[in-house]
Amino acid sequence: MGKVRVAGFGVSLDGFSAGTDQSLEYPLGKRGPEIFQWFFGTKTFRAMHGQPGGSEGIDEKYAFRAMDGFGAFILGRNMFGPIRGEWPDDQWKGWWGDNPPYHAPTFILTNHPRDPIVMQGGTTFFFVTDGIESALEHAKTAAGNLDVKIGGGVSTVRQYLRARLVDEMHLAAGPVLLGQGENLFAGLDLSALGYAVTSMEQSEHAMHVLVTKQ
């Protein structure tokens, strides 16, 4: 069976992994894109958007790893879209258009039931209403021998870390201070939870840190 991983997760120097006021205009929150500057220029990111070229090197290595080897994904409701509360209709199908970048079963944590959505490219969105453990059980079954990615957002990653369900986490710490937003580390004692830094590699745009469960 594969690992449960967080990968390619951007974080500011003051611990924020999303900006404030997420909306259609600001999917990552205001100033949120600043913590992903290491990612946007990579070959992997450009290929995800049907564009040629892109950077090689350290950032590309971690960008590729952030999308490779996964048989299923888990996302929080806010990662799927800006809609809150009951689903008003079936029109919203995610930020990514008809062919999302997951290409695998993707489980959305929500309090509001919804039928699965089959998208192009192998992505099917499933909506899980009975908690993080249930979503992980479904994801592991779907992934088989491949890994499961906890794709975010911040609250979802924090819940899985607090429950010690994450085996490995790759953080890309960018040289920016957000000052406000969603803080990944607030109230979390990762050391007490049994996590430790096991490697670090520096690029021009980010410090790539691997944190693993001991």
Results as ranks from 00 to 15, higher is better:
62 Y>A: 01
183 N>P: 12
12 S>A: 13
147 D>Y: 10
114 R>N: 02
77 R>L: 09
193 L>P: 12
113 P>M: 06
214 Q>W: 06
14 D>K: 11
83 I>Q: 11
211 V>I: 15
29 G>T: 06
75 L>M: 15
192 A>S: 15
178 L>H: 04
140 K>C: 02
114 R>M: 09
209 V>Y: 04
109 L>C: 11
185 F>L: 13
33 P>S: 08
207 M>D: 09
57 G>C: 11
126 F>C: 07
42 T>C: 11
213 K>A: 11
76 G>E: 09
2 G>N: 01
37 Q>T: 14
71 G>N: 02
165 L>P: 04
160 Y>A: 05
180 Q>C: 06
158 R>K: 14
123 T>M: 01
164 R>W: 00
112 H>I: 00
11 V>N: 02
110 T>M: 03
154 V>E: 00
20 T>Q: 13
132 I>M: 02
11 V>Q: 01
106 T>F: 06
83 I>T: 01
168 E>F: 05
155 S>M: 12
183 N>L: 07
128 V>A: 04
50 G>Y: 10
214 Q>Y: 13
35 I>Q: 03
12 S>T: 14
127 F>V: 10
125 F>A: 11
96 W>M: 09
120 Q>D: 15
112 H>Q: 01
117 I>V: 15
7 A>I: 03
168 E>K: 07
40 F>K: 04
91 Q>H: 14
164 R>T: 01
120 Q>Y: 06
177 L>W: 13
155 S>V: 11
164 R>I: 00
153 G>E: 03
75 L>E: 15
66 A>I: 03
7 A>E: 15
79 M>S: 13
128 V>E: 10
168 E>Y: 03
14 D>W: 11
145 N>C: 00
181 G>W: 08
42 T>Q: 05
28 L>H: 06
64 F>N: 07
91 Q>W: 12
144 G>E: 06
133 E>T: 14
56 E>S: 15
63 A>T: 04
136 L>D: 02
28 L>E: 07
81 G>F: 05
165 L>I: 04
147 D>H: 12
34 E>W: 09
86 E>L: 02
149 K>R: 13
140 K>N: 02
149 K>M: 06
65 R>M: 05
39 F>T: 03
94 G>E: 14
165 L>K: 09
34 E>K: 12
110 T>E: 06
40 F>E: 04
147 D>M: 08
99 N>V: 11
136 L>H: 07
6 V>F: 14
138 H>L: 14
177 L>R: 10
191 S>V: 08
185 F>P: 05
128 V>P: 06
155 S>W: 12
23 S>Y: 12
33 P>I: 05
202 Q>D: 05
105 P>Y: 02
175 P>D: 15
46 R>T: 07
79 M>Q: 12
203 S>K: 12
183 N>V: 08
214 Q>C: 01
122 G>I: 08
181 G>C: 08
88 P>A: 09
108 I>W: 11
173 A>S: 08
14 D>Q: 10
193 L>A: 02
139 A>W: 01
53 G>L: 11
58 I>P: 01
59 D>I: 04
114 R>I: 09
98 D>T: 13
168 E>M: 04
209 V>L: 14
122 G>T: 14
132 I>S: 02
33 P>R: 06
99 N>P: 02
64 F>P: 00
5 R>S: 04
68 D>H: 15
142 A>N: 02
86 E>D: 10
53 G>I: 13
190 L>N: 01
146 L>T: 07
195 Y>F: 08
150 I>C: 06
7 A>F: 02
143 A>G: 03
58 I>L: 09
